[in-house]
Structure formats: structure tokens, C-alpha cells
Design a protein around this nucleic acid. Structure first.
Lengths: 247, 247
DNA sequence: AGGGGGTTTTGATCCCGATCAACAGATTTG
DNA sequence: CAAATCTGTTGATCGGGATCAAAACCCCCT
């Protein structure tokens, strides 16, 4: 089982992804952006300033996974949003909470460009503008859905929803199920789902017992039954719509 | 106390608002939009379709208060987002949940325009584009903050946060405190804060006992002590930043 | 005044997830 | 290798909000 999965993962070229490609494809749109952008490679856990160097910097995710962390007063840390390849990150789109920081949850590459340059690029090209508008719209929808998830779903349902999201985004279909490489840490997941780590641990045990989740060492997990997993989340179809590219 | 408040409210021209004007001012930007838009006047509780008549219709709020309602499966109905004058509403920015509908929470006026026309307008005018971009960014930030509120704050803190938001947006400063006219129904508030009506009732009783909230008949409420109210929410400063116009 | 239907309130109880504490691995450090 | 530290697990207990049911209050009627 493990071997099959690792084969699938080492074979980067042929892997049959469930969701989007991990690295955004380089289209003409990207090429135009690229000219004005500074590529930044970040390691795991590295923080990116949102207020430096220019007042409003725009980041575009090329590969990897990033997230916005914030904390309210004496409340536990929260992971407000996850960013996947193609996503657009800017301070103005995030709540002005103190200590809001952009953190790489995995080794990632982002393109940094000043807000002015970004706006100018959009103005110059109609297609590009529509494309970015669509992406920003999707991200808004995801933020809104996240509130819905946290507000209405039980712990188990929230966790199932996250697994579905990760499966669609960074999952790789193997013979034994869908494998996910290098996911969030336990604490990250707890902060994202507004649960505490203790509770999350109980939930994962329950999922393991139900056969929905198989931990393979090294931060890799396997989802043996996609159908059952989807049945465990009341918003599976919505997640599929939001996390699968329209193609 | 009541008399003072009603004076303040009947005197529409001179009222000293805490937050934004209830009706967006008619700037040049608006004038350009106006040419391509169909004004729609809606009554309380009226629903607006988001998928009709064109696949992606854009609404711009001119006055009043609207909200997105949605429900997950057997879960209780949720109020995902509130829209104030100047806000931009489009289907693509909302999660593709079944039964997601745009509802007027108060008598309102919106401008309806087809997505294509909206995009074309933005492309034509740089200032307009920047302005809309800023508004959409703010709305995204509010959606994200809402997830944060629901995920991290207690019932009392959530309610205090909502009162602060409403005070900033539609509150009117009077001698006895800040008055709010025609707020959301009990159920609306509960759905927005991800609480159930029973719990919300207990919270309001508590607020009344603490002297933070005075109900005046006819859907009007009074916030006698703005400072104490702000102290009851850990995100008061963030709310002020998001719900006060930069001017 | 007296109904009648809806909403808000209140009381009693329950349950999910938080909290606290102790322990087990894993990783780092001397 | 052992000490230290961080992360994840498990058990016991607690509490905030949910749930259910009944009473009180509104508002509109005629």
C-alpha cells in the first residue's frame, strides 16, 4: 500500500491528480505577470510580511501552500485562509487584525509585486483582468464558506471537509486510495477548523477507526475511501465545485 | 431618552452618524455606473435571484441592508454576509451552496447590472476600477473576519461585535447614546452569529441587565455606553477599521 | 374585549468540545 | 546518551451553548 503510493508520488510527470496541478501552469497571462514580479522562494514556516516592503504588496502563489495566521487578544491562534497555487494574496483583502501574518505552510514559491504594478497590469489586459477577478471571487467564496463550515458543522464534519479540500487540491490518486503529501501540522489543522488539538486528536482517531484515514509516516496520509469521506461532509459537492478547476 | 432619540432620527439631514452615510453618495463614479444599471427597489424580506436573469448579475447596494442566506443540508439556516450601501454583490463571490439567496433585510435600493457591463465599466476607468477593487477587498476582509468571529469568540463577544458593527454602519448618535433603527430580526441575528435563538435571547437579557442595550419599541434599540460595548468585544478596533469609511 | 398565530423568553436537561493533566514519541541540544 | 523541548495522544472533568418544552408576550384581527 505504502509502496504504491510512493511510486505514484515519485512519478511526478504521470501522476493522476484529483484536483488542480500543484504548480500553476505558465500561460501568457503568467508571462506578463512574471516580468513585473519578483520570485520569492520560501521554506516551511517562513513568514512573509504583508506590510513590507511597499505598503500594499501583492503575492501570487506559484507552488506550495501558504496561510494567513492571526490571533485575537487572548484567544487561540487561528488559520484564517489557505492559499494554493494561482491564489492572490494582498493585505487589503484580509481583516486588519493585529499580528496577521502570511506563513508558508510548506516550501513554496510566490511572485511578489507592488500593488501599483499589479493594478496597472490588470488595466492593460482585459483577459488578465477577468481571470484575476475570477480568482479573487473564488477566494472570497472560500472565505465565506469557511465561516459557514466553522459555524454550522460538527468537528467530524469540519475535518472531513478539510480532507476533501486537501484531496482535491494536493491529493494524488493511487491504487490504494488518494494520498496526500506533506499536509498541515496537527496544530495548523486545529487552528484552521477552530478546534483545539486535543479534540482534533480524538477526531482523527475516530477517522482512523472508521477506515477513512490511514497515516503513513513522514507527514503523508492516505484516504482509502473517497466516497465514504465525501459522505461524511454535508458540503462535499460545494467543496468539489470550489476546489476543482473548471476545466 | 426616547424623545431625544426620535428627534435625532426624524432629523435626517443633520443627524450625526457614527459610521457611514446610509445612502452612498452620488459621485462621478456612481454616475457612470448609473447609466448602465437598472435601479431595483426591494421591500423587507424580498429575495433577489443571483442566477437570473443573466448568469452572473452584479448588484450594487445603494441604500438599506441585504444579506446572503444559505443552509447546509439539515443544518440551521445561516446568514453568511451583510451588505451595506456601496457593497458589490455577485454570485461568483459566494460559495456555491444550494439555496443561497440574496435577501433584503430592510427596505433597500440596489443597482442591477450584467457582469459584462460591470467589467467593461471597470476596464474603462482606472479610478473606478481601483475603487471597486478596494470595496471588494474590504468585503473579502469582512467575510474572513466573520469566520474569525464565529470561530474564536464567545456568544456574548459575538453579539457585542455585531452591535458595534451596526452602530458604526447604521447607528445615530443621540444624547442618550447611539440609536439603531430597524435592525435585523432575532432570527437573523442568531443565524448571522451562528447561535440559536434561545441562546441569543439569554445573551440579550444579559446585555440589558448590564446596561449595554436598551430596547425601544418598534425594532429600535439604544446603546447607552459605546465604550463599555467596545470593551465587551476583543475585536472592537478591527471592527472600527473595517466599518468606518477612510475619510 | 377576546381570540389566534407568531415570536421571544424562560426553565430543565443534554451533549459536544474545551480544559486540565499526565503520558508517549519525536526531535533537538548539551 | 541523557536532558530538554515540542508535538501528539489519552483520560477525566467541566462548561457553554444546543435542544426541548412550556409559558409569556406581541401584533394584528373582527
Amino acid at each position: 500500500m505504502t509502496i504504491i503510493l510512493q511510486n505514484a508520488m515519485s512519478d511526478t510527470a504521470n501522476r493522476d491528480r484529483v484536483g488542480e496541478l500543484p504548480v500553476a501552469r505558465l500561460t501568457e497571462t503568467d508571462a506578463a505577470l512574471r516580468e513585473h514580479a519578483t520570485p520569492v522562494r520560501v521554506r516551511r514556516r517562513q513568514r512573509l510580511s504583508l506590510d513590507q516592503p511597499t505598503p500594499d504588496t501583492v503575492y501570487i502563489v506559484r507552488s506550495g501552500l501558504l496561510g494567513i495566521e492571526a490571533a485575537i487578544l487572548g484567544k487561540p491562534r487561528q488559520l484564517l485562509e489557505l492559499f494554493y497555487p494561482g491564489d492572490i494574496i494582498r493585505r487589503a483583502n484580509m481583516p486588519p487584525l493585529p499580528n496577521a501574518t502570511l506563513t508558508a505552510l510548506n516550501v513554496s514559491e510566490v511572485w511578489r509585486l507592488p500593488a501599483r504594478g499589479f493594478e496597472a497590469l490588470l488595466a492593460a489586459n482585459v483577459d488578465q483582468h477577468a481571470n484575476m477577478q475570477r480568482r479573487l471571487g473564488e477566494q472570497h467564496a472560500r472565505a465565506s464558506l469557511h465561516a459557514s463550515i466553522i459555524g454550522a458543522l460538527s468537528g467530524d464534519e469540519r475535518f472531513a471537509s478539510l480532507l476533501i479540500e486537501l484531496g482535491l487540491r494536493i491529493g494524488q490518486r493511487g491504487a490504494a486510495g488518494i494520498g496526500i503529501d506533506n499536509p498541515l501540522s496537527r496544530t495548523d489543522i486545529a487552528d484552521y477548523l477552530a478546534l483545539n488539538p486535543d479534540t482534533l486528536s480524538r477526531i482523527t482517531s475516530r477517522f482512523r477507526a472508521r477506515g477513512l484515514l490511514v497515516p503513513l509516516g513522514g507527514g503523508q496520509i492516505l484516504l482509502p475511501s473517497w466516497e465514504e469521506l465525501c459522505a461524511a461532509s454535508p458540503i462535499a459537492t460545494t467543496l468539489k465545485a470550489l476546489h476543482t478547476p473548471p476545466g
